[in-house]
Each structure stands twice: as C-alpha cells, then as structure tokens.
Design a protein around this nucleic acid. Structure first.
Lengths: 349, 349
DNA sequence: GGGGTTTTGTGAAACGTTCCCCATAAGCGA
DNA sequence: TCGCTTATGGGGAACGTTTCACAAAACCCC
C-alpha cells in the first residue's frame, strides 16, 4: 500500500495537510490564512501554493471553536416583505467582496420563534447579527448585543450596546400628509401596525410613523380629522382595515399605510366595494417596494432606500466585528415621496 | 476570592459545568442530550435539572467538530420570488417541532455565487441542504450530495446521490393549453426562462414546461402555432417579452408564462400598449403566488403546492440526515389550474 | 450461585482551528 | 565583536463536544 503519509482518500483536507505539503508548521498556515503579523513573502507563497494544490477550505466549525466563523446572521420575520429583500440586497452587496457569508433566519412573526432563531445564531457563534425590526423583547436583544455585535434595523430606540439603522418615519409620514393636504384632502386616515405591546420597544417604526402623522395633521390644523386604524402589514390585514374604514359613516377621502402590502389589501377592499382609486379614495403605501410600481397598481409610496439601509447596517456591523469601533452608532435615512397614480384631489372639491 | 470551583462570571456554561452540577460524567450529559441508548430515567432527570438550572445551551460549533450541527441550509437565488416563500413556509412548518434550525442563503442568480454559498454551507458542517432550482453546474451538486444529504427542488434530473422534489410542469403546461384551447385560442405563446446552458441540467423546470407545452399544442393539432419566447423570470423580463410578442406581426391571442412575476411584466407591457386583458389578450401565470390573487390582477395561474413541496423536501432530508433511509427518492407534485379573470375567449371568435 | 448477557456509567481520545509563548535568525549601532 | 532589538517560525495547549472502548453493576436462567 501507499506510505503512511499519503492523505486518506475520503478525508477532508485540513490545515495540517497544508502545513505538511508546504513543509511548514500549522501555526504558519494559520497566520497566512488570517494574514497575521510575522509572515515572510516566501512563506506566504509556499502556503498559498499548497492551499491551491490541495484545494483546502477552512473548517468553519473548527474556527468557531476558537475565533471567528465569518458568518453574519440576518433575522427577519417573513420573506414575503419585499422591503426586506431590498435591505438584503444592500447587505449582500456590501459583503460580497469580503470573506463573510450571510445566512438568513426567517423566524415568523411570533416573538418566541424569533428569540429561538436569535439564540440559534448565537449558538452557532456567528460573528455578527443584523436584526430587522425584531419583535423579541428588548431586554433580550440587549443581552444578545452585549456578547455579539448587533445592528438593529427599524426600531428607533437606541442603546449603547448595539448599532441602529432606521428611517425617519416621522418625516415620511409628514411628507405623505403634506402631499395629501396639498391635493385638498382633510379626512386622512392612517393604517399602521398594532404596537407590539410586551416587547418593550418604545420607538418602533409604527409608533414613530403615527407620531409623525399626528404631528403633521396638527400642523395643518386637522387634529379633529385624526383617524388611526391598526392592522397587520399583510394583504389580509389591509383588506380588513379597508372594509372597516371604507364602510364607516364618515369615510376618509385618503388612506395612508405603513406598508405597501397593506395598501394593496385596501385596494382590494375598495375594489370589492366598487370604489375607484384614486377617484373615490386616494391611497398611499410605504417602502416603495416593487409592488408599488407594479402595473396596474401604481401606488404612491414613500421610498426608504432599503438597499442603502442594508449596506449601512453591514458596514457598521463589520466595523464592530473587526474591532475598529466600540461605541454604538446610529444611522438615520431620509425618506422620499414617490408620487404615482393612486393619489389625486378628492372628488367633492 | 471565591473557591476555584465557582463558575467564572462571563464564561459560557459548558457541558462540563452541567456534568459537575449533576454529579455525573460529561459522557452521560452528552448521552442525555442526544437521547442515546443507555441512560437511566434517574440520570435523565438529574441531568435535565442541571441543564435547566444553569441555562445550558449546546455550543453548535463544538458539535460541528464531531457530530451534527442541527442546521439545515436552504439555497435559493432570490428572496423576491413569492413561490420560494411558499416553499420555505413548508420547510419551516415541517421542521418547527424539531431541534433543527433552518438558515437561508440567498445567493443571487450567478452560478458562481451559488456555488460559493453551497460551499459555505458545507464548510459550516450543515447536516443537510435543500437546493431550490440551483443554477450551479450539476456535477458540483452531485459532488456536494455525495458528502452531505441533499434535496434538489425543481429540476427533474434525478440522481442516486440526492433526493428530488419537483412539480409535474409538463402536466401543468398541458392544463393551461387545454384551458386556453377550450376557450377558443389557437395562437398561444409561451414565455419561459432561458435554459441555463453550461450547468448541465437536462430537465430543468423550463425545459419540462416547454416540452409539456409543445406536446399539448401538438395534441390539439396546433404545431404550426407554436411560439416560445425566452425571458428572465422577473417583472422586467416579462415586460420586454410582452412588448416583443404583443407588437409582433402575428400577435398571439393568449400568452402563458412560467412564473407569475413574468406575467405581471407582460401585464404592464399590455397596459402600455393599450391592450386590455383578457379582452385583447389572455394571460396565464405559473406558481399561483400571492401576486396572482392580488387585486386587480386576478391572474389565472397554475398552483404547485409550494408549501407541500417544502415540507416534502424537509421530511425527506431529515430521513436522510438521521440515516433512516439511504436510497435516493423522488417526489413529484401534481399541479392544478386556478382560473381567474385574466383568461377569456378570444375576441374575434 | 455460576456463567452469561444486558444495562448503565466513565475516561480519554479525537475533531480542526487559533494563539500564547518561546526559540532562533537577522539586522544594527557602537 | 558584543549586546540589543526586531522579524520570523514553531510547539503545544486550549476550545466544547461526541464517541470508542471498556468497567462495573444488575439481571437472568438454569
């Protein structure tokens, strides 16, 4: 048979094999891999050659036992929200040139399930976490952030343990109200997500959005026209909200929502009630997802620059992971109104 | 200060701590954790109590060095395809009651990127992989499957190293053609994805769909009306295809597509050309995603039971991971036509 | 009660990395 | 040439788990 030193056939090639082939120590190989200090060009070359020859790939689990795993975890509730896809694009783009791998946990809407996924990620020694609008209780997120670099996207609560990226939803709401008032509307209803009661976040996007709406309406002297309706950000949630609002005694002439998908549900409700948009009711979405642009919907919406949020989050996270910064940081994006065909002057004007 | 045995403050609690607390060996704890053979009820109880008391959680990376990681990786190209979300729901549902965690890799459309993500998952010692319509060259997938249990969703090529779940796309195409012919159409065009040339898959969903279409048209004696157009399964891809087809000299009276999202692109093109659907052109999607049902689109589509495909894939994968089966298996789903408002008899009839 | 089998438990060796600490070599100023 | 600093490389101990091999105890059937 072959010599004892011959690599066994179906065995994974390890750092030891590389070291043996290159005729150096495993320490040296490790140093090259992590381009650490104290490695001569000649050594570099020898090791790289051996790596290429053997097709060596570092064993992530083994790495996880000591140092980094080069894995970034992204938590989101559901994959259907097109806005999250925009954020993901930004994250991927930012990280595509690095060695890090992005893995996504789709946890569903239940806070328990989300906690479970977050714990899983921590157990897997991920180097950093990006949590998109987590429904998990805030203390839990803070505890996680204390041990693993974390960026929270969406919530406006800031903390000194994690970084944050958020959209100025209050300004966004203001843009919408201004636009609608400019068209002549006064009865402007807001459909927003129900506040996640027990989670102890005080400045969720919904809350900030509602505040912005309230403030803007007040600014225009329309405080007695305030009307806030809570609904899940889904087609079904929007549909129900739409039926309620549009059959109410005092029907709003315009409805603004916190998510495009909910706006589409309202669209469906209007359709069912034989109300035309924008002739009978103006409708505004939020997030400017691909849905909003889709013919024949053509939904006026608010653009949040999802990809930019994603890449900002990724950039901040890597800074933390690599220890280049240790103070919490917060990035706020400025929203922009995208006017399409779902808004017009109210009829009776 | 305190005794040497006191657990250090900021240290992760390990299996050793549990063993010490319970007064047993680490082996015993490990056995309890993996409910292996040879552990008395009394032992069970002691160990579980210690685990609960200390709040112990197994270190996934350490597990990865020896045995399982209890992680299932799902590869998909992009998160925006609502059909994938359906599949994911099925996977999550099937696995929710188990100890496994599902992590998603969104790799983009580039085969290189997809390969990279697959390798990452293997490096991370994932217990099993579900690949949704991978664009990676087939030999690479086979090589991966040889070492890690793998289920391929979508492609009809079967192999003895991996399990497969697919939809009978040929039958689906037949259903659509039958439906359209029944309404009186003869000029029925198909918009399908361009074949991924170099990847060496011979029976991708596109190919099977096209075959089914061709066969069905032939069955109705319409071979000279065959018209296949290739376009990316995206809004933009559909839009371009729509412009081309609908401005052609011999305009089809019906267009069927391989994906709802492409159908919506065609819808947009029709809109732009001032053609009404279904009055001027009938339109059929595929996959019956949430998009198809969205008002005011109401797209006739083909339901593929995405959640069922996902749960079947997950079930098969776990069987393999846990070694309960070692022969490759293949599950084929039967599609169902969902008739909505986008199809009608052609005008000139 | 003697031989067997089965059950229950343990010690210790992996698994593939990283990184602390040390040894040696090389460079350099006097 | 001496003593010092700096650059380069290696030995070997972790990291937290699983599992192999084995020992001890318990049971069982004549």
């Amino acid at each position: 048979m072959g010599g004892a030193a011959a690599p066994r056939p179906n065995k994974r090639v390890t750092i030891n094999d590389v070291a043996r082939t290159a005729g150096v120590s495993t320490t040296a190989v490790s140093k090259v891999l992590n381009n650490a200090y104290g490695v001569s060009p000649r050594m570099q070359e020898k090791v790289r050659a051996a790596i290429a020859e053997l097709g060596y790939r570092p064993h992530a689990a083994a790495r996880g036992m000591r140092g980094r795993t080069y894995t970034i975890g992204v938590l989101l509730d559901n994959v259907r929200n097109a806005f999250f896809a925009d954020i993901l694009d930004g994250i991927r783009e930012e990280l595509s040139s690095t060695e890090y791998t992005v893995l996504i946990g789709a946890a569903g809407f239940e806070p328990d399930q989300q906690s479970r996924v977050i714990r899983s990620m921590v157990d897997r020694q991920m180097d950093g976490l990006i949590l998109i609008a987590p429904g998990t209780p805030r203390p839990e997120v803070l505890a996680t952030a204390a041990s693993t670099p974390t960026v929270v996207i969406g919530h406006h609560d800031s903390a000194d343990t994690h970084d944050s990226v958020a959209d100025a939803d209050d300004i966004g709401a203001g843009l919408v109200v201004d636009h609608l008032v400019g068209l002549g509307h006064r009865d402007i209803a807001l459909v927003s997500a129900p506040g996640s009661k027990a989670a102890q976040w005080r400045r969720t996007p919904e809350i900030v959005l509602t505040d912005g709406y309230t403030e803007a309406m007040r600014r225009h002297g329309l405080e007695q026209h305030l009307q806030v309706h809570h609904a899940a950000y889904s087609d079904e949630g929007g549909f129900k909200a739409g039926l309620t609002l549009l059959t109410a005694e005092r029907r709003p002439t315009a409805i603004m929502t916190g998510a495009d998908v909910a706006a589409l549900g309202i669209y469906r409700a209007a359709h069912e009630l034989a109300l035309r948009i924008p002739e009978d009711v103006s409708l505004v979405g939020y997030n400017n997802t691909a849905l909003a642009a889709l013919a024949p919907v053509q939904l006026t919406s608010v653009d949040q620059a999802g990809p930019d949020m994603g890449s900002a989050a990724a950039r901040m996270l890597i800074e933390r992971v690599e220890g280049r910064r240790d103070r919490a940081q917060r990035t706020t994006m400025t929203p922009r109104l995208v006017q399409r065909a779902s808004t017009a002057a109210p009829r009776g004007r």
